[in-house]
Design a protein around this nucleic acid. Sequence first.
DNA 1: ACAAGTTCACGAACAAAATTCATTATATTT
DNA 2: AAATATAATGAATTTTGTTCGTGAACTTGT
Lengths: 158, 158
Amino acid sequence: MKLDQKDIQILKLLQNNARLSNKEVAAELDIAPSTCHERLKRLTREGFFRAFNANLNLKKLDINVQVMVSVRLNKHEREVVNSFIKRTRTLKGVIKFYHMAGDTDFMIHIGVKDSEDLRSFILDKLANFSYIDHIETAMIFYDECVCNLSIFESEVLE
Amino acid sequence: MKLDQKDIQILKLLQNNARLSNKEVAAELDIAPSTCHERLKRLTREGFFRAFNANLNLKKLDINVQVMVSVRLNKHEREVVNSFIKRTRTLKGVIKFYHMAGDTDFMIHIGVKDSEDLRSFILDKLANFSYIDHIETAMIFYDECVCNLSIFESEVLE
DNA sequence: ACAAGTTCACGAACAAAATTCATTATATTT
DNA sequence: AAATATAATGAATTTTGTTCGTGAACTTGT
């Protein structure tokens, strides 16, 4: 499946503003709304979008502490790893979940109200999983979704 | 400003599907579209949304390598830090940008085509910033935006 | 180079959703 | 309880989404 410039432009626009209307995207690309609609439908059908997420202003929700929790397990069989993922990804406060290669097995971006909630998250929820080898917590001052698609403007995929 | 259950439900719904139509959200909350529209407008006006991002299927874009690059600087004056941020956050391939407290100053989630592009990213783009003390790269097997808002269902903010 | 076929973009027509607003209902305050 | 403020509603209007027939542009095979 080939992507041309227009397709890539659509992806980039929605990447940075997922609530743009079809009409707005069309205007940006300088094509007819119906044409744009066809392309957007095709991109969706072909699975170019994983999800559309609203990035919330956490401070307004009284979520004042964001941290990156790095976890190392002491067993790495598929079963143990899967069970960790299954159990952890649904915990309240989890924002983003990375499964890593290397020293650290998981990096979990979490957001909570205060340091008490953080303590409870780590001690009560994370640490009582049986195969934890190591947990390290680093505070996040500031995070940002940048989304600079690493595709050259001249590049066309097929 | 107070948030009630319905507001929180709206935020959660859009967090997980930012392209839901007003009508769909209204149906989910079991309220009239006009009511829902008012609330959504209010939430937007009051700044509860930072952004709406499409999460793209990177494999389909020939972006096969995702890594978390940890950077430590050897100077931490505001000027140096700001200049690093300004310079780095716009680099092609940067997906998410974390400014950290602690051992590591920045964690940068990047996505590139292959290990060659990664090498070039690190050597040509990152490493020639003057105040780099340390760069560490960890491969990401898999990442996911989970968005489990850490707000209790019974909780109401004001 | 040319004909046949395919792909793509377009605009008009229709359907659906967004948006506004006057009215009614529900809370809050005094 | 009356008065006031706040929120929800449905109907009317505007705007957008969606479909589809038509024609332009581009491919392919000869």
